[in-house]
Design a protein around this nucleic acid. Structure first.
Lengths: 135, 135
DNA sequence: TAAATTTGTAACATATTTTATTACAGTATG
DNA sequence: CATACTGTAATAAAATATGTTACAAATTTA
């Protein structure tokens, strides 16, 4: 899961923020995202690993937020779901006998790293609460 | 082609900048990128459509830069190969009967649009010449 | 304590996207 | 006219993302 991971996760978190007192089931959440509940549970597993949510198994179980939405930033969500932004690399290892091929990936990495810092600063300024309160 | 398009294109352009007097063949370029020559020609077709390079068909043909490398910015290359940056969307249309589902994509679009402006500003400050001269 | 409901997870299936290959017509060079 | 390129379409293969099925384990509630 790459393309949808951030979007799905922030969707889940927004729902949890809207219902702070309930344990929401993966099926309910899946109905809002229009996604298979198993995939929702997989993203929740990721959130749990980062101690962002807590789940309850069994009947009437589900998931709820475990952190203050005002203190959770989009940067953190980004890092949990995307690692890093960038414009990609060619699939195959470039020719090491060519001065350009030998060094291109290293130079791209530097460039992308700067992009990440840039975007991270922006996302750091937005909390889940900010995002959720737009709705 | 998504993941590699920008990287391949800037690789091509860097090579063309290093050999400003030659028409480089797609096979030569492909050898540096370690990529099928047909895919190189496809990216070159994109560059030609943007009047960044010119090609000569026939024997001893190939491609060379058609612009001043000092005036071509990475932002322009980004726009020719990536349209826009972002953190993706869920694949399926979210539930329109849910207040969150109904509006999430619109809010994500705004967020991603801000990211784009941010990154574009950064990439605008770097020319192909700057990038190529690192090698 | 039994039935119902939900998470957690693995295994597998399908769909989508990316990358690679083959083929060949068209064009310029020598 | 032989050679070596580009341009492009059609197809194949590989990689990745998404979806489905299945079921054990946990918890609630009757």
């Amino acid at each position: 899961m790459i393309s949808g991971k951030f979007a799905i996760t922030i969707h889940i978190l927004t729902l949890l923020h809207k219902f702070p007192n309930d344990y929401l089931s993966s099926e309910f959440i899946a109905g809002s995202i229009n996604l298979n509940p198993v995939l929702v549970r997989k993203e929740i597993a990721n959130l749990k690993a980062h101690h962002i949510v807590e789940s309850k198994e069994g009947k009437n179980g589900g998931t709820k937020l475990a952190v203050n939405a005002a203190e959770l930033t989009l940067k953190q969500i980004f890092e949990m779901t995307f690692e890093s932004i960038g414009l990609g690399f060619a699939k195959n290892q470039p020719n090491p006998d060519c001065p350009v091929g030998k060094n291109i990936n290293q130079h791209l990495e530097v460039l992308y790293s700067e992009m990440n810092q840039n975007v991270s600063k922006q996302l750091e300024a937005i909390s889940l609460e900010d995002f959720s309160n737009q709705f």
